[in-house]
């Protein structure tokens, strides 16, 4: 006997503890609650406390609307978002990582020889892991199993704060002439150059791409913020392997602000949409 058969009996006002019922209740604490108090809870949850079934005409009208939606799913945008999920995530991850790989292929930052290797590897690994994690969750299909509730906000916060933390800790080194620029009168122009480079090379293209790869078109604020976070980290990744400046103010103004600007922009738009929807 399974839960469904127990429920059927309870719906027919039969809460007798027959041997087969008893056998089921031994392993099913949930049904035991329904049978307790002579099946009172089961009677309280009778089907007529819930809305009635839909009328055939209502269902037919809904099917027509869905078929209309599906018929409009044409063109390259529809094809892109219908790609299998591993491919969609792979495309986004490639766009996030490729600029940094190309920068490394062309020699990378001028001070690479003196930059502490362990620190470089740790920073790159953190950027890559968080960016890929954020993009994977941002493009997760709706049928996927739920992730722990705090994971998405944690990834977004990590993507925003990690570049700030890296800018706030002592400089990696001051042993290369190219690393000493970026302060004083150079601060704003060089920070602006890095900001624009990071924003326009990987960040904005990745943000736009993930909007097309997202099957919901970034209608979900959390998904949009995850993709924006990944784009911000992709920008920081290429700057980490390309920009030789180690001045903390330069890192804070020119690098770390990219993720926060993207997340703030998406968050602002999303909150405004939510506010309008709730009115």
């Amino acid at each position: 006997m399974d839960c469904r058969e127990i429920h059927e009996r309870l719906r027919n006002h039969d809460a007798r503890a027959l041997p087969d019922v008893q056998a089921h209740l031994v392993g099913c604490a949930a049904c035991a609650q329904l049978v307790a108090d002579e099946g009172a809870l089961a009677r309280a949850l009778a089907p007529d406390v819930v809305p009635h079934d839909a009328a055939p005409a209502e269902l037919e009208s809904m099917l027509g609307a869905i078929q209309g939606d599906i018929a409009r799913e044409q063109g390259w945008q529809a094809r892109v978002r219908e790609l299998p999920t591993p491919i969609r995530i792979g495309i986004a991850a490639s766009v996030a990582l490729l600029p940094a790989l190309l920068a490394l292929a062309f020699g990378g930052r001028a001070d690479m020889g003196v930059y502490p290797l362990a620190r470089m590897l740790l920073i790159v690994a953190l950027f890559v892991v968080i960016a890929i994690g954020a993009v994977a969750l941002g493009l997760q299909p709706l049928y996927a199993r739920a992730v722990p509730p705090g994971l998405r906000p944690a990834l977004i916060l990590a993507a925003v704060w990690l570049p700030f933390i890296l800018g706030a800790i002592p400089a990696a080194h001051l042993d290369h002439p190219a690393s000493l620029a970026g302060g004083g009168a150079d601060l704003v122009p060089r920070a602006l150059r890095c900001f624009a480079f990071g924003m326009f090379i990987p960040a904005i293209p990745l943000t736009i791409l993930t909007r097309f790869l997202d099957r919901d078109g970034h209608a979900s604020l959390v998904r949009a913020l995850l993709c924006a976070s990944a784009a911000g980290l992709a920008a920081n990744l290429i700057l980490q392997v390309d920009c030789p400046i180690t001045h903390p103010l330069h890192l804070l103004l020119g690098h770390a602000t990219i993720a926060i600007v993207l997340v703030a922009a998406y968050g602002g738009v999303g909150l405004a949409r939510t506010f309008l929807a709730q009115r």
């Binding site: 209502e58 869905i66 799913e73 219908e82 999920t85 299909p141 049928y143 099957r215």
Partner: peptide
């Protein structure tokens, strides 16, 4: 009704998965 329609639209979009 909108959510049911959305669910079936997503079933369609995710069919290759």
């Amino acid at each position: 009704r909108d959510l049911v329609q959305l669910a079936f639209l997503h079933l369609h979009r995710a069919r290759l998965d």
